[in-house]
Nucleic acid binder design. Structure first.
Lengths: 148, 148
DNA sequence: ATAAATTTGATTGCGCGCAATTTAATAGCA
DNA sequence: TGCTATTAAATTGCGCGCAATCAAATTTAT
């Protein structure tokens, strides 16, 4: 027989922290889509390019560490970026297990077209600078705690 | 010819707000996986069940509005939940376009097995109560701004 | 030197997530 | 009454996201 319940319901959607995280992530990525379409990139491809714009020639492993993605996601994604002509994939002579991913000239040039994107997306959100900063800090605190 | 750049780089991964959102969402859902496995639910199925535990018998449309999901995601997901025996799918006589999703007895009973999950996940995060509250509030502020 | 363990990446398979299209049913209106 | 517009789901197709497995190369310990 069911007992009546009082007070806090741990299973209410509005009592979850994960649910708004999940929604925010999806909804904000949705804002990127029309902008990235012009560059022929998906969001995951975009952050991969960002990692390479910061440091050209990274291994799949290094990319995975920085982007929190594994090879099951990266391998087909990198092949797709190679097909688009944005990156090359070359195995190291010194260690044939390591696949080095590097930008092509076209891939490097794409960065200029991507430059206005962050501000364009930020314009959709209308969070104050302080709120955005707080959110940023809390998210990284969260990630830091999770990694273990 | 390239100009040297000074100061803020809008395309640095560490200058993005979306990236840590995306990572947090994925990493926290990863924490749910082993817990939900025991209930034979994925995370998306879990939040669908949560919506139904809150209010039994919702249309696909209502579920989509509450969960920020569309029919392309929900239709196969709900068929899967039906196959597992957790929900039924019935069209309304009054309006045959509307598909009512309702809990079976097994689906209702599953709630008890799910009760300890939120606390178990919260234990992984070790955010203080105040930080969790701040994060929660900022995320909903963010969602509120995005909906337009 | 050689066997065992580790590391790196590829592959496979499944479940979203979503845009676009289609089908069916209802509501609004001349 | 019909005609149109709208709404609700389903369907299709593609790209992740990730667990699990596999193969190859390297490191290590004996």
């Amino acid at each position: 027989m069911d007992m009546p319940e009082y007070g806090f319901d741990p299973l209410k959607l509005s009592n979850q922290l994960c649910f708004p995280l999940y929604v925010c992530s999806k909804e904000i990525i949705k804002k990127y889509r029309p902008l990235l379409e012009k560059l022929d990139l998906t969001y995951t491809q975009y952050i991969t390019m960002m990692a390479l714009w910061e440091e050209d020639s990274l291994s799949v492993k290094e990319l995975g560490d920085r982007l929190y993605l594994d090879s099951g996601t990266l391998t087909p994604l990198l092949k797709s970026l190679e097909t688009k002509g944005y990156v090359t994939r070359t195995r190291l002579e010194s260690d044939e297990r390591v696949l080095a991913v590097s930008l092509t000239e076209e891939g490097k040039a794409l960065r200029v077209k991507a430059l206005p994107i962050p501000a364009a997306v930020a314009a959709c959100t209308s969070l104050s600078a302080e709120d955005a900063r707080s959110l940023y800090d809390l998210l990284y605190k969260f990630i830091g705690n999770l990694r273990g």
